[in-house]
Design a protein around this nucleic acid. Structure first.
Length: 771
DNA sequence: ACCGACGTTGGG
DNA sequence: CCCAACGTCGGT
C-alpha cells in the first residue's frame, strides 16, 4: 500500500522495498541513488539532490527527508518512529542508524558529516554547520544539538538521557562519550575542542571559548564548566562529584584530574596554566592570573588558591591538608611541595621567589616583598616568615623545628651578601642538627608569639579543612552510596617529597654554599616541642612515634619507603637547580618543562592525560607540550585491565588514551553486563560456564548449559538492536539476538575454553563499540 | 558459512 | 507466564 514516486531524476536509481503503507518519493534528483527498504508506515523523501545517495532502511513509522542536498549522502537505517531530516546540505554526509523514536535533523550544513547511530528517543540536530562533522551514537533519550558550527566536529556517543549541545562553534571539535544523564554544552567556541567522556550525571559546559580545548572525562556527578576562554585548554578527568570551572581564561591551560569531591576553579586567567591533579576533597582556585602557572597535585584535603597574580608561577605538590595561597603577586614564583599540614602564603610580592618544600607542619609566609627571595626547604615544624622586605633574600633550609623570620628589611641579605643585621631576621644554617636544640633559634620577643601565631594559623586552616571535609561529606550523603567507583578509582598516591628528612639527610637542598658563611644570629628557641602539642592533634592523631614520613606514607600503600628515600636527595637537589632556572627566566613555560622533568622522580608516566597531540591544535596548550604529570605513581591513572577506550571508529578523532576512561569503563562494563558474578572471580568478570556445572572431568563435550554473555566485549556493550540484521528481522521466529550484539565469546565454539585473554577488552575491540 | 526455524533455558 | 536469547538442526 505504499506510494513510491520518482520524478525529474536523471540516471538515478530509486528503489523501494518491503514498504508497508509508506510514501517514498524522489524528485529533482540527478545521478543520485534513492533507496528505501524495510519501511513501515514511513515517509521517505528526497528532493533537490544532485549526485547524492539517500537511503532509508529498517524504518518504522518514521519520516526521512532529504532536500536541497548537493553531492551528499543521507542515510537512515534501523529507525523506529523517528524523524530524520537533512536539508540545505552540500557535499555532506548525513546518516542515522539504529535510532528509535528520535529526531535527527541536519540543516544548512555544508560539506559536513552528520551521523546518528543507535540513538533511542533522542533529538540529534545539526544546523548552520559548515564543513563540520556532527555525530551521535549509542545515545538513549538524549539531546544532541549542533548549530552555527563551522568546520567543527561534534560527536556524542554512549550517552544516556543526556543533553549535548554545540553552538556557535567554528572549526571546533565537540565530543561527548559515555555520558549518562549529563549535560554537555559547548557554545560560542571558535577552533576549540570540547570533549566529555565517561561522565555520569554531570554537567559539562563550555562557552565563549576561542581556539581552546575543553575536555571532561571519567567524571561522575560533577560539574565542569569552561567559559570565556580563549586559546586555552581546559581538561577535567577522573573526577567524582567535583566542580571544575574555568572562566575568562585566555590562552591558558586548566586541567583537573584524579579529583574526588573537589572544587577546582580558574577565572580571569590569561595565558596561564592551571592544573589540579590527584586531589581529594580539596579546593583549588586560580583567579585574576595573567601568564602564570598555577599547579596543584597530589593534594589531599587542601586549599590551593592563586589570585591577582601576573606572570607568576604558583605550584603546590604533594601537599596534604595544607593551605597554599598566592595573591597579588607579579612575576613571582610561589612554590609549595612535599608539605604536610602546612600553610604557605605569598602576598603582595613583586618579582619575588617564594618557595616552600619538604616542610611538615610548617608555616611559610611572605608578604609585601619586592624583588626578594624567600625560600624554605627541608623544614620540619618550623615557621618561616618574610614580610615587608624589599630586594632582600631570606632563606631557610634543612631546618628542623626552627624559626626563621625576616620583616621590614630593605635591600637586605642577598645570596652572597651575608650581612644580616636586622635583629628581626634570623637564619639557621646548619644543615645538620646535632641534637635537636643545636641549631635552634631564639629571638627576643619571639619566644611564644610565633608559636601562637602558627598554632592559630593551623587551627584556622584545620577548621577550614574540617569544614570543607564536612561539606563534602554532606555532598556524599546526598548521593547516598559511597561511590562504588571510588574504591576502584586509582588511589591518589603521589610520591611524596622527602619531607622533613631533607636536612637530616645532609643534603643541602639547593646545593648552595652560602649558608655556611651566613652570619648566624643563632638564638635558641625551643618551640620544637612539636609532636605532642599541636602537631599531632587533629590530623595525625595517635601515631606520634613513627617518623612523620612513615606516618604520612601509611595511607598510600603504593608508595614504598625505599622509593621515597631513594629519590629524596635527588629530588631536592634538582629543585635547587630548578630554582635558578626559574629565577632567571620569566617564561614560566620553559622552567615548567624543566620542573616537570625533575619532579618526575623517575616515573615514566608522563602526560597521563595524553594531551600530546591535542596541543598542536591549541595555542595555549602548545607551550605545554612537554608537560608531564609530575609525581604520579605508576598506579594512579594508568590503564588497568578492563579499560575501555572508545574511539567511535574515527581514527582521526581518537586520542583515546585518556586515562580517565579507566575505572569508569570497568564499572560500565558491569552495569551493562547481565553477569552479576563479577566479584566471584577476579580473573574473569563472568565465567562462561555457570559456576554450578563444573563438569568434573573435562569441559570437552559437556557444557550443554546455556552460556551467558560476557558483558564486556564490544557487541555486549551495544544497547540497541540494529533492527536490520537477519536476527533482528526474524526476531519473532529466530529467537536470536541482534547480530551486532551477539557476544564475541558466545560466537566461539562452546567447547573452546578460553585460557588466554581475560575479558579485558582488547584495545582494538573498543573501537567497534557501536559497530 | 550463513540463514531460518525450533526447542529450550534463565531471569523477571 | 512472558520474554530474551542460547543451542542446535536442516537447508541453501
Amino acid at each position: 500500500n505504499g506510494l513510491t514516486r520518482s520524478s525529474g531524476v536523471e540516471n538515478g536509481l530509486t528503489r523501494s522495498s518491503g514498504v508497508e503503507n509508506g510514501l517514498t518519493r524522489s524528485s529533482g534528483v540527478e545521478n543520485g541513488l534513492t533507496r528505501s527498504g524495510g519501511i513501515e508506515n514511513g515517509l521517505t523523501r528526497s528532493s533537490g539532490i544532485e549526485n547524492g545517495l539517500t537511503r532509508s532502511s529498517g524504518i518504522e513509522n518514521g519520516l526521512t527527508r532529504s532536500s536541497g542536498i548537493e553531492n551528499g549522502l543521507t542515510r537512515s537505517s534501523g529507525i523506529e518512529n523517528g524523524l530524520t531530516r537533512s536539508s540545505g546540505v552540500e557535499n555532506g554526509l548525513t546518516r542515522s542508524s539504529g535510532v528509535e523514536k528520535s529526531l535527527t535533523r541536519s540543516s544548512g550544513v555544508e560539506n559536513s558529516l552528520t551521523r546518528s547511530i543507535c540513538v533511542e528517543n533522542s533529538l540529534t540536530r545539526s544546523s548552520g554547520v559548515e564543513n563540520g562533522l556532527t555525530r551521535s551514537s549509542g545515545i538513549e533519550n538524549g539531546l544532541t544539538r549542533s548549530s552555527g558550527v563551522e568546520n567543527g566536529l561534534t560527536r556524542s556517543s554512549g550517552i544516556e538521557n543526556g543533553l549535548t549541545r554545540s553552538r556557535g562553534i567554528e572549526n571546533g571539535l565537540t565530543r561527548s562519550i559515555c555520558v549518562e544523564n549529563g549535560l554537555t554544552r559547548s557554545s560560542g567556541i571558535e577552533n576549540g575542542l570540547t570533549r566529555s567522556s565517561g561522565v555520569e550525571n554531570g554537567l559539562t559546559r563550555s562557552s565563549g571559548i576561542e581556539n581552546g580545548l575543553t575536555r571532561s572525562s571519567g567524571i561522575e556527578n560533577g560539574l565542569t564548566r569552561s567559559s570565556g576562554v580563549e586559546n586555552g585548554l581546559t581538561r577535567s578527568s577522573g573526577i567524582e562529584n567535583g566542580l571544575t570551572r574555568s572562566s575568562g581564561i585566555e590562552n591558558g591551560l586548566t586541567r583537573s584530574s584524579g579529583i574526588e569531591n573537589g572544587l577546582t576553579r580558574s577565572s580571569g586567567v590569561e595565558n596561564s596554566l592551571t592544573r589540579s591533579s590527584g586531589i581529594e576533597n580539596g579546593l583549588t582556585r586560580s583567579s585574576g592570573i595573567e601568564n602564570g602557572l598555577t599547579r596543584s597535585s597530589g593534594v589531599e584535603d587542601g586549599l590551593t588558591r592563586s589570585s591577582g597574580i601576573e606572570n607568576g608561577l604558583t605550584r603546590s605538590i604533594c601537599v596534604e591538608n595544607g593551605l597554599t595561597r598566592s595573591s597579588g603577586i607579579e612575576n613571582g614564583l610561589t612554590r609549595s611541595s612535599g608539605i604536610e599540614n602546612g600553610l604557605t602564603r605569598s602576598r603582595g610580592i613583586e618579582n619575588g621567589l617564594t618557595r616552600s618544600s619538604g616542610i611538615e607542619n610548617g608555616l611559610t609566609r611572605s608578604i609585601c616583598v619586592e624583588n626578594g627571595l624567600t625560600r624554605s626547604s627541608g623544614v620540619e615544624n618550623g615557621l618561616t616568615r618574610s614580610s615587608g622586605i624589599e630586594n632582600g633574600l631570606t632563606r631557610s633550609s634543612g631546618i628542623e623545628n626552627g624559626l626563621t623570620r625576616s620583616s621590614g628589611i630593605e635591600n637586605g641579605p642577598s645570596q652572597y651578601d651575608h650581612s644580616v643585621h636586622s635583629h628581626s631576621s634570623t637564619t639557621t644554617t646548619n644543615g645538620h642538627n646535632h641534637h635537636g636544640q643545636c641549631c635552634a633559634v631564639t629571638m627576643d620577643g619571639c619566644g611564644l608569639t610565633p608559636v601562637l601565631d602558627y598554632t592559630a594559623e593551623m587551627e584556622r586552616y584545620r577548621s577550614f579543612a574540617n569544614f570543607y571535609a564536612k561539606t563534602n561529606v554532606n555532598m556524599n550523603a546526598v548521593n547516598s552510596m559511597n561511590f562504588p567507583q571510588s574504591a576502584k578509582l586509582a588511589r591518589i598516591t603521589p610520591p611524596m617529597f622527602p619531607g622533613g628528612r631533607l636536612g637530616v639527610a645532609g643534603v643541602t637542598p639547593w646545593g648552595c654554599h652560602d649558608n655556611v658563611n651566613m652570619n648566624i644570629n643563632a638564638a635558641a628557641m625551643l618551640w620544637g616541642r612539636k609532636p605532642p602539642v599541636h602537631q599531632a592533634t587533629p590530623l595525625a592523631p595517635p601515631t606520634t612515634h613513627p617518623p612523620p614520613l612513615a606516618t604520612h606514607m601509611q595511607p598510600h600503600p603504593h608508595r614504598t619507603g625505599g622509593e621515597g628515600k631513594q629519590h629524596g636527595g635527588h629530588a631536592s637537589s634538582s629543585q635547587g637547580q630548578e630554582t635558578h632556572h626559574h629565577h632567571g627566566n620569566n617564561n614560566f613555560l620553559s622552567g615548567y618543562t624543566t620542573t616537570d622533568h625533575m619532579t618526575k622522580q623517575g616515573h615514566t608516566h608522563q602526560d597521563m592525560l595524553s594531551l600530546s597531540d591535542r596541543n598542536s591544535s591549541c595555542n595555549g596548550g602548545g607551550g605545554a607540550n612537554g608537560v608531564n604529570m609530575p609525581n604520579f605513581p605508576a598506579g594512579m591513572l594508568g590503564l588497568p585491565p578492563g579499560v575501555i577506550v572508545m574511539a567511535m571508529g574515527s581514527h582521526n578523532g581518537v586520542n583515546i588514551p585518556d586515562s580517565s576512561h579507566f575505572q569508569m569503563a570497568t564499572n560500565h562494563n558491569q552495569m551493562l553486563s547481565d553477569c552479576h558474578h563479577a566479584n566471584q572471580t577476579n580473573s574473569s568478570p563472568c565465567p562462561s560456564t555457570s559456576p554450578g556445572m563444573t563438569s568434573g572431568g573435562q569441559g570437552s563435550g559437556a557444557s550443554k548449559r546455556k552460556r551467558k554473555r560476557c558483558g564486556v566485549c564490544a557487541p555486549c556493550r551495544r544497547l540497541i538492536n540494529c533492527g536490520v540484521c537477519s536476527a533482528c528481522r526474524n526476531r519473532k521466529t529466530g529467537h536470536q539476538i541482534c547480530k551486532f550484539r551477539k557476544c564475541d565469546e558466545l560466537k566461539k565454539k562452546a567447547g573452546s575454553i578460553q585460557l588466554e585473554s581475560p575479558p579485558s577488552v582488547p584495545s582494538g575491540e573498543a573501537f567497534r563499540w557501536f559497530f
